[in-house]
Computed example of a mutant assay.
Amino acid sequence: MLRIEKLTKKFGRNTAVDSATIHVDKPMMIGVIGRSGAGKSTLLRMLNRLEDITEGTIIFEDRKVSSLTGADKRAWQADCAMIFQQFNLVPRMDVVSNVLHGTLNRRSTLSTLFNLYPTDDIHRAIDILDRLGIAEHAPKRAEALSGGQQQRVAIARALMQDPKIILADEPIASLDPMNAQVVMEALRRIHEEDGRMVIANLHTLDTARRYCDRVIGMRAGRIVFDGLPEQLTTDMAREIYGADATFSEEATSTEINTIDRSAAKAALAKVTA
């Protein structure tokens, strides 16, 4: 389904991603872990073609993504939605309009200029917001929402593209533990219910183990681990993070230890209901 062969990105003399090879045969939820600067974000940006590729190839369902240009490249970016750490919403615009921006790739210049949307698209946007548990916020400005709610708006915008792959670049890095779990649960449900491939950059080992079918570990631009979550041992984590025997997984944990667990369950139930 997805073949990445010897993918490399260089910035001058620095190599951000070094000959990465990944084969994915079916839709999966994949976590990419590693310390800051390991090349995780650059890898996803090359997949989405936001970054030019120095060497290597990307092939998705017999489409050579790494060679696409112009309209073909934009069509791929519609099929490969991107979710960012900082949400990338329009703060003063209402939530439903932010979600509708996921249709910009297929709208005319005139309709974009006057902010005109088909009724069916508006209804679909609200349905997606309802699926993510935030439909009641549709008329509010995006800036009025919490960080976790804004990230779910960003996920809704991605779903409006009806993509084949969703790439999430550190989607929970700026969220508190409860909202982080809500967002990861939403991404997991999208994978399971829609059959979409989800690839998420993550800092935390417990999150990767809990939500992902497969984990890829990167260190200094190279893939040093590619396996099942249960194969991600503490020793392997030390290798990925370049840490010594003092390394503790608690330093990367997103487990909720200090908040009311009943409140966390209630928040998750609202999303999964």
Rank of each mutant, 00 (worst) to 15 (best):
residue 188 R to Y: 12
residue 53 I to S: 08
residue 263 A to V: 13
residue 123 H to V: 14
residue 167 L to E: 10
residue 215 V to T: 06
residue 95 V to P: 05
residue 80 C to E: 05
residue 225 F to Y: 13
residue 231 Q to N: 14
residue 191 H to N: 15
residue 123 H to K: 15
residue 104 L to T: 09
residue 92 R to N: 15
residue 14 N to Q: 13
residue 271 V to W: 00
residue 86 Q to P: 01
residue 199 I to E: 02
residue 162 D to F: 03
residue 220 A to V: 08
residue 250 E to F: 00
residue 234 T to H: 05
residue 208 A to W: 01
residue 112 T to N: 10
residue 143 E to I: 12
residue 82 M to G: 11
residue 243 A to E: 14
residue 108 S to Y: 14
residue 260 D to N: 15
residue 151 Q to E: 11
residue 221 G to S: 08
residue 266 A to F: 06
residue 97 S to Q: 12
residue 137 H to S: 09
residue 24 V to Q: 07
residue 100 L to K: 03
residue 179 N to D: 14
residue 238 R to G: 06
residue 189 R to Q: 15
residue 89 L to C: 04
residue 272 T to F: 01
residue 12 G to D: 03
residue 159 L to Q: 06
residue 129 L to G: 01
residue 21 T to E: 02
residue 230 E to H: 07
residue 159 L to K: 08
residue 213 D to Y: 01
residue 51 E to S: 12
residue 142 A to S: 15
residue 183 V to R: 01
residue 16 A to R: 08
residue 215 V to Y: 07
residue 60 F to H: 11
residue 181 Q to N: 15
residue 20 A to I: 15
residue 109 T to C: 01
residue 175 L to P: 01
residue 244 D to M: 13
residue 203 H to V: 10
residue 203 H to N: 09
residue 233 T to V: 08
residue 159 L to R: 06
residue 265 K to P: 00
residue 36 S to G: 10
residue 177 P to Q: 12
residue 269 A to L: 07
residue 261 R to T: 06
residue 78 A to D: 03
residue 63 R to Y: 00
residue 264 A to R: 07
residue 151 Q to D: 12
residue 10 K to P: 00
residue 139 P to S: 05
residue 59 I to E: 14
residue 94 D to T: 15
residue 162 D to W: 06
residue 162 D to I: 11
residue 251 A to H: 04
residue 37 G to P: 14
residue 173 A to Y: 01
residue 32 V to T: 05
residue 63 R to W: 00
residue 115 N to K: 13
residue 124 R to W: 00
residue 186 A to N: 03
residue 267 A to D: 01
residue 147 G to A: 07
residue 153 V to H: 04
residue 22 I to S: 02
residue 38 A to E: 12
residue 189 R to C: 07
residue 269 A to N: 13
residue 92 R to P: 03
residue 187 L to H: 05
residue 229 P to G: 03
residue 137 H to L: 08
residue 168 A to K: 02
residue 82 M to S: 10
residue 48 N to I: 02
residue 5 E to I: 13
residue 138 A to Q: 07
residue 202 L to W: 05
residue 96 V to A: 15
residue 248 S to F: 00
residue 119 T to Y: 01
residue 247 F to P: 09
residue 42 T to I: 04
residue 135 A to I: 09
residue 64 K to P: 01
residue 31 G to N: 09
residue 269 A to K: 10
residue 218 M to S: 03
residue 43 L to A: 11
residue 101 H to K: 07
residue 4 I to Y: 05
residue 92 R to L: 09
residue 272 T to Y: 00
residue 220 A to T: 10
residue 31 G to Y: 04
residue 69 T to E: 13
residue 198 V to N: 02
residue 4 I to W: 06
residue 183 V to I: 09
residue 136 E to T: 09
residue 120 D to P: 01
residue 98 N to F: 02
residue 99 V to Q: 05
residue 69 T to L: 10
residue 260 D to W: 03
residue 22 I to H: 08
residue 167 L to D: 09
residue 71 A to I: 09
residue 5 E to M: 09
residue 148 G to K: 04
residue 138 A to T: 05
residue 145 L to S: 10
residue 54 T to M: 03
residue 13 R to M: 06
residue 13 R to H: 13
residue 145 L to R: 07
residue 268 L to M: 13
residue 49 R to Y: 09
residue 260 D to A: 12
residue 268 L to H: 02
residue 226 D to M: 04
residue 114 F to A: 01
residue 214 R to C: 06
residue 45 R to M: 13
residue 79 D to L: 11
residue 157 R to L: 08
residue 237 A to D: 05
residue 193 E to S: 07
residue 173 A to H: 04
residue 44 L to K: 04
